[in-house]
Design a protein around this nucleic acid. Structure first.
Length: 372
RNA sequence: GGAGAGAUGGCUGAGUGGUUAAAAGCAGCAGACUGUAAAUCUGCCGGUCUAAUGACCUACGGAGGUUCGAACCCUCCUCUCUCCA
């Protein structure tokens, strides 16, 4: 079979309702991909994850390259077998670590030299090595190796970085020899002219999908939305569009409306571990004293295990006492909430009512009736 | 019975004449988190008033004293702990 195929089933304005077929199953889009950096969606067993039902998750090249190492990963049969996950996996190329680990790396034309954040040892990632590692991990979708520039640097510097990303994009594709599908990444910061150039350049390369990278790196929300709205329509219409690292529930609604098909973000999982929970009635900081005696389910409109079986009072107690179960329950809920949201979004596109769905969602959340 | 040590803010615990409303940790209260160096980080944390700066009050076991000034020095009292009988 081909590495990947994408078809659009319906649309609503710029929003698309589609299907991506991978070697590990079919993905309904728009889709949210939970992040499992180290071949684990933090705090969840694969079985628990499976029951939540995401059709695809993320892994990370940089982190897995360090531990357990790609040789071992390959020897153990790839990430799917390693974590006993039979659905799709997309791997980030390590490009984000060029940004997030900027203090311990050095960028050159050839690639990026990292000092391991674990033991200080030197590691090198280039388009060729990144793609090689991703293929050997056996992921369904690999990402081109890119440079993710920080927010706030000058236009000329963003342009230089973007051009490097373009050269690396072609090298990434040339390095792809295996079964993994490969997505290109558009850069260009917050600058329309650069984003346009990048979209044209990356869009002209024979990738299986195209991502918008370099957002959610500290820029104001409006800038991110502006870049997304500007760039999405410039991307090839017949390929999946992936907005990297985004975002909040509201961001997902906006992204879909702009024509994005795929999202990933650490927010639901990280926030869960930090006691910040997304609900249909707004955000809940479960550690707040007001939940100490609150016997209601976290979210009355949610059917996840957490909301079906335990109270806010219990969730608060687990969190405050530092019990591991707090992270499990919280993560189950937040991931479930995100997946439910995407399900609702897909249905609304199919029935041409995305705008109404968005309005209803936001009005419920904004009304702040968590305490009602 | 004898010898010694100690009593500090909700807790543990620094501080031995002024810059001390009093370190630090914990607990408590709140906030942040966007392709994960995150079960992390930040702020507040005696009281009242203030948007804030700030002002006043109360405070280092109790009572008294020395001093311009005391958590810190002296006296007595109360209590706690350790060792020896």
């Amino acid at each position: 079979m081909s590495r990947l195929s994408f078809s659009i089933l319906a649309s609503d304005g710029a929003a698309r309702r589609g299907e991506i077929v991978t070697r590990h199953g079919t993905i309904q889009t728009p889709v949210f991909m939970p992040v499992g950096t180290l071949a684990s969606v933090k705090s969840l067993t694969t079985d628990q994850l499976q029951q939540l039902g995401p059709e695809i998750i993320l892994n990370n090249t940089y982190h897995l390259m360090l531990r357990p190492g790609v040789d071992l990963l390959e020897e153990l049969g790839g990430v799917h077998k390693f974590m006993n996950w039979d659905r799709a996996v997309l791997s980030d190329s390590g490009g984000f670590q060029v940004f997030s680990l900027s203090s311990i790396r050095k960028v050159r034309e050839e690639g990026v030299e990292f000092r391991s954040h674990i033991d200080g040892s030197a590691h090198f990632l280039s388009p060729e090595t990144s793609i090689d590692i991703q293929q050997r991990m056996g992921v369904d979708i690999a990402m081109a190796f890119d440079e993710c520039p920080a927010y706030g640097i000058e236009h000329a510097e963003v342009e230089r970085s973007m051009e490097l990303t373009h050269r690396w994009a072609r090298r990434s594709l040339a390095a792809r020899t295996g079964e993994s599908a490969l997505f290109g990444i558009v850069q260009g910061g917050i600058h329309h002219d650069l984003r346009k150039r990048s979209a044209e350049e990356i869009g002209s390369i024979d990738f299986d999908g195209v991502a918008i990278g370099g957002v959610s790196v500290g820029e104001p929300k409006e800038e991110m939305l502006d870049v997304t709205r500007f760039t999405a329509p410039l991307l090839p219409a017949d390929k999946p569009r992936y907005l990297m690292g985004v975002g909040t529930p509201e961001d997902l609604l906006d992204g879909v409306a702009a024509g994005i098909d795929m999202f990933d973000c650490v927010m639901p999982t990280r926030n869960a571990r930090n006691g910040s929970l997304f609900t249909s009635l707004g955000k809940v900081a479960i550690k707040n004293a007001r939940f100490a005696n609150d016997q209601r389910p976290l979210d009355p409109n949610c059917t996840c295990v957490t909301c079906r079986t335990v109270s806010r009072a219990y969730l608060r107690h687990l969190y405050v006492t530092g019990e591991i179960a707090a992270m499990v329950y919280n993560t189950i809920h937040n991931v479930s909430f995100y997946l439910d949201l995407m399900r609702g979004i897909r249905q609304s596109i199919a029935s041409n009512s995305l705008q109404a769905f968005r309005d209803a969602f936001l009005s419920r959340v904004v009304s702040g009736e968590v305490d009602a």
